[in-house]
C-alpha cells in the first residue's frame, strides 16, 4: 500500500472531529547501535483528530511505541515534523518540551510505573507539583481524578498494597490529573488479566466518550483495540490501515 493510500484509509476511518490535534508528517526515526543503523520509522504520516480514541497495533519492534513516544515528546524524530495542538514539538528545546509535556500530555504505562515510596494520592499529584497550584488546589484535583477512576477509597494506599488493576487506575489518574490535551497509553492492559483489563478499557472509553479526551493507545490485543474508535497498524516502520498478514 502506498503512503497516500494508507493516509486515505486512515482518514476514511476517522470520524470523530474535523479538527486535527496531532499531525505527524514525513516522520523518520533511526537508532544507532554500534555501527549498525536501525530504521524504526520510515517517512510516516498520521493525523489524529481531537476527541479520537486511536489504537496502534503491530508486532513487537514494529515501531508503535516509538511513534507514541514521538507524539508525547519523549523522543525526537530523526526527520519530519510533529505538531500537537498547533505546536511543532519536534523543534522545542528540552526544557520547553518538558514544560509542554507537563501541560499537554498524560502517560499511562504498561507496568504502571508508580513511585513505590509515594501513596496513591502523592503519585497522582506528581505532575501538579510543576504547576503553580496551591496545596489545597492540588488536593482537589487529585480527589477529582481519584473519583473519575473510582479509587477515592484507596488514596492513602501505597502501590505495593494495590492490585494491578488499582495501580493502573492510579496511573490513569496521574495521566489525567492535569486535564491534558492528549492521553497516551502504552499497552495499558498488557500486565492485567482479561477482566481487569476490560475495566481499564471501560475507563479509557469513558474518558474518551464522557470527558472528550483524545487517547492514543498502543496495544497488541485486538480485544483492546476493538474499544477504540479507530485502529491503525504499524509494521516495519510504516503505518497501515489494515494488519499485514
Amino acid at each position: 500500500m502506498s503512503r497516500q493510500a494508507a493516509l486515505d484509509q486512515v482518514e476514511a476511518t476517522s470520524s470523530v472531529s474535523s479538527e486535527t490535534l496531532v499531525r505527524v508528517e514525513g516522520c523518520t526515526k533511526h537508532f544507532r547501535r554500534g555501527s549498525e543503523e536501525i530504521r524504526v520509522l520510515e517517512k510516516l504520516d498520521l493525523e489524529v483528530p481531537k476527541g479520537e480514541f486511536l489504537a496502534l497495533m503491530g508486532p513487537s519492534g514494529s515501531g508503535k511505541s516509538t511513534l507514541l513516544n514521538l507524539m508525547g515528546g519523549l523522543d525526537r524524530p530523526t526527520t519530519g515534523s510533529i505538531t500537537v495542538a498547533g505546536e511543532r514539538i519536534d523543534q522545542l528545546s528540552r526544557p520547553k518540551l518538558a514544560a509542554w509535556r507537563a501541560r499537554h500530555v498524560g502517560f499511562v504505562f504498561q507496568f504502571y510505573n508508580l513511585l513505590p515510596v509515594l501513596n496513591a494520592e502523592r503519585n497522582i499529584e506528581l505532575p501538579l507539583l510543576l504547576t503553580h497550584l496551591s496545596r489545597a488546589e492540588r488536593k482537589k484535583h487529585v480527589e477529582t481524578a481519584l473519583e473519575i477512576v473510582g479509587l477515592s477509597h484507596r488514596q492513602k494506599h501505597y502501590p505495593g498494597t494495590l492490585s494491578g488493576g488499582e495501580q493502573q487506575r492510579v496511573g490513569i489518574a496521574r495521566g489525567i490529573v492535569t486535564d491534558p490535551t492528549l492521553l497516551l497509553a502504552d499497552e495499558p492492559t498488557g500486565d492485567l488479566d482479561r477482566k481487569t483489563g476490560d475495566e481499564i478499557l471501560d475507563l479509557l472509553q469513558a474518558l474518551n466518550r464522557d470527558h472528550g479526551k483524545t487517547i492514543i493507545m498502543v496495544t497488541h490485543d485486538p480485544h483492546a483495540a476493538a474499544r477504540s474508535t479507530r485502529t491503525l497498524y504499524v509494521n516495519e516502520g510504516r503505518l497501515r490501515a489494515e494488519p499485514v498478514e
Binding site: A98, A102, F107, F109, N113, L126, R174
Partner: peptide
C-alpha cells in the same frame, strides 16, 4: 532510572 524517566515523562525538566 525508571522512576526518574517517569518524572521526566510527566514534565519534570532535566534541571528538576
Amino acid at each position: 532510572t525508571g522512576e526518574l524517566a517517569v518524572l521526566k515523562a510527566v514534565g519534570f525538566t532535566d534541571a528538576h
